[in-house]
Design a protein around this nucleic acid. Sequence first.
DNA 1: TATACTAATGACTAATCGGTCATTTGTCAA
DNA 2: TTGACAAATGACCGATTAGTCATTAGTATA
Lengths: 277, 277
Amino acid sequence: MLKKQLIMEKALELFSEQGFEATSVQQITERCGISKGAFYLSFKTKDELIISMVENYLQRFVTDVDQVVKSSLSKDIKLVEFYKSIFQAFKNHAAPARVFFNEKVLLSKKELFQKIIAYDVEMSKSIIYMLEQLYQDELHETKYDVMYCIKGFMKSYSELFIFSDIPLDLDQLARSLAEKTEIIARHTTIPFITEELVQLTAKPCNEEVSQESLLELIGQHLDGLEESIERESLELLKVQIENTTYSKPILKGLIENLRLQPDHRWVAYVIAKYFNI
Amino acid sequence: MLKKQLIMEKALELFSEQGFEATSVQQITERCGISKGAFYLSFKTKDELIISMVENYLQRFVTDVDQVVKSSLSKDIKLVEFYKSIFQAFKNHAAPARVFFNEKVLLSKKELFQKIIAYDVEMSKSIIYMLEQLYQDELHETKYDVMYCIKGFMKSYSELFIFSDIPLDLDQLARSLAEKTEIIARHTTIPFITEELVQLTAKPCNEEVSQESLLELIGQHLDGLEESIERESLELLKVQIENTTYSKPILKGLIENLRLQPDHRWVAYVIAKYFNI
DNA sequence: TATACTAATGACTAATCGGTCATTTGTCAA
DNA sequence: TTGACAAATGACCGATTAGTCATTAGTATA
């Protein structure tokens, strides 16, 4: 789908310049050099466009970071590489960052809110994974606080990339923040963020996932999905939802199959939530 | 002006629910129980409303914090009280916080952008004042980094108040963050944020680079720069600024020569901006 | 060349927007 | 009761919006 990509790119430019609500479909199609009708061949509504964009760009950001975290880099340099990859991403993709990290209008649309939260949770998990790897048992109660600090560093320092194009030394920035993280991790004694708190913020809308809406979501995903492990997993899960049979480990495995493919991460997240996994 | 206050309050509710662009004047007047005409007796335009609101709420937030900073509290407790006042404000005024700290659509309106930046600068100044008071000469080069960390803590932890209404122990939060700040201040050795950088972000980025200031900057760089490709490039560029002769590709090449050397990256950036390259 | 089919168009609609202004309502002193 | 003045109204305006659909253009097959 080349057309879809083109629209997303140009729309991104406009959203980052003017904001989502203030940008009209007309403007988007003009910048693409296509007709208004052509837009609606690619996306059913304007909302569908922004949803696709969130999936496209946030997905990439989160998985990029996760890749560094899960890489075989030595402990000495992992933290530095972690920060370097994050700010490299902010530098190269300042426009999407501006839109998705700042435009919280998006949060008034429930579906998007959930999705953005979900990606934030993914990011948190990556960071926690890294911290456990780096410090193992040294961090007990302060693990989640260190995670919050890291996210704070990201938020604060990323503004340098988002609101200006001053040339910055990424290496030094990464080393500087790695040192700060190290210091915080080694010396903090007063915890505040508990595991319980993290779980609470992960699902602020304690809205239950209804069986009906979940089956519909799965139906949509199955459409236009060719024969594959993912399809089979999804079909098995669908049966499972209608009539419980398998045990938790099997379910978890099936969901994990889906999670590997970026396109299915969201549906995997929702199913996991439904089964409380 | 009671009517003005009423409108601002109700508008704030709606903005925090739906965002600025997505909220119509009609909706505001309906919630206020007044007519559309009455709205325009208080505010000339919808934009004037949001500007007034920014002034009203951000003003209060910044001055509240500044009051604590400038107070006669002892060093031991000042940091804790600083954080307590900040999160107290976030707790009590979650709605304005949601609007003004997250809705960066506002930034597409130039006048507002400048104003919000101005308040951010005020906040930074308060924090720096506090750090100088607390640590005096102990912090040399890392002063601005500590300030960025504090702002990062604020951004990260404030989400707990903005996106949920979980009951939280403000005292422990403040003590926890005060400890983190203390640790960072005492142990950081690798600085990243320089005074120059802070001044740059304080200025609106669209500012034209004047020929005069540019020549001065180049002059500074030429001093203490021995004979080299970089020096020659810089001298050629200096001549070029005073009297255009070369074509764009040549200029770009000369600037590129400078960019390779970290020390000259900044001057390269400014020159590129001057020539619109 | 004729046919069949998809991709693309842009005039069109109904709704909504920010903003205006002739008119009505409410409140005084005389 | 009247007249004068300000406060408040809401029908109305032109512009703009998201979204539709009859029509046309382009392309592949027969």
